[in-house]
Amino acid sequence: MNIFRLTGDLSHLAAIIILLLKIWKSRSCAGISGKSQILFAIVFTTRYLDLLSTFISLYNSCMKVIYIGCAYATVYMIYMKFRATYDGNHDSFRVEFLVVPVGGLAVLINHDFSFMEILWTFSIYLESVAILPQLFMISKTGEAETITTHYLFCLGLYRALYIFNWVWRFYFEGFFDLIAIVAGVVQTILYCDFFYLYVTKVLKGKKLSLPA
C-alpha cells in the first residue's frame, strides 16, 4: 500500500458517495446516466468475485463490499426509487457497442484462459469505458450539474492516482500488470477533456455547459 493507492481508493469512494448523496438529497437522478451505473455494477461484480474465494485483508474486503453495495444502491435509486426523474431519453448510448467488443477482447487478450481470470480482465476493460454513456449524456444535453462534475472529477482522479501507484510499484516492487496499465491509461485519457472543462469552468464557479 502506498499513498497513491490509498488516495486513489479514497477518491473512488468519495466519487461513489457523492453520487449517492446527490441523488438522495435532491430526490432526483436527473443528468445521471443509468447505463454507466449499470456498467459499474457489472464491473464490480465481475471483478470482486474473488471475495468468495480469497481473503487479502480486512481493508480490501470492506472496500469491495462497499463498492459493490453502493453500485447496486445507485442502480436501484435510478431505476426503481427515483425512476420518474431518470432522464432516459438523453441516456441513449448503445451499451452493447461497449460490452460485446470488451467481452471479445477479454477472451482474446488475458493473462490466463480461466473463468475467473477472464471475468477479471473483462471488468478491467469494461471499467475503462464504462463512463462513456455518462460523458455522452453530458455532451448531448450540453450541460451538467456542478455536483455531477465533482463526481466525475473524483472518478477521473482515482484513475490518474492509480497510474502513479503503478509507476511507484514498478520502481519499488518491480511489479506491473500490462492489462491494468493500458486500460487505466485509456480510462484516464477519456477524462482529459472533462478535466480541462472542470478546471477552466467549474473551479472558477461556473456551471459546466458546452458550446452548442
Binding site: 500500500m1 493507492r5 481508493d9 473512488h12 474473488d50 480469497t54 487479502i56 485483508s57 480490501n60 472496500m63 469491495k64 463498492y67 493473462h111 490466463d112 492509480y162 501507484n165 510499484r169 516492487e173 511489479f175 506491473f176 500488470d177 491494468a180
Partner: peptide
C-alpha cells in the same frame, strides 16, 4: 508473481 501482486488492488 504479477497476478498475486495485483490481487490486493481494488
Amino acid at each position: 508473481p504479477s497476478r498475486e501482486c495485483r490481487k490486493d488492488e481494488l
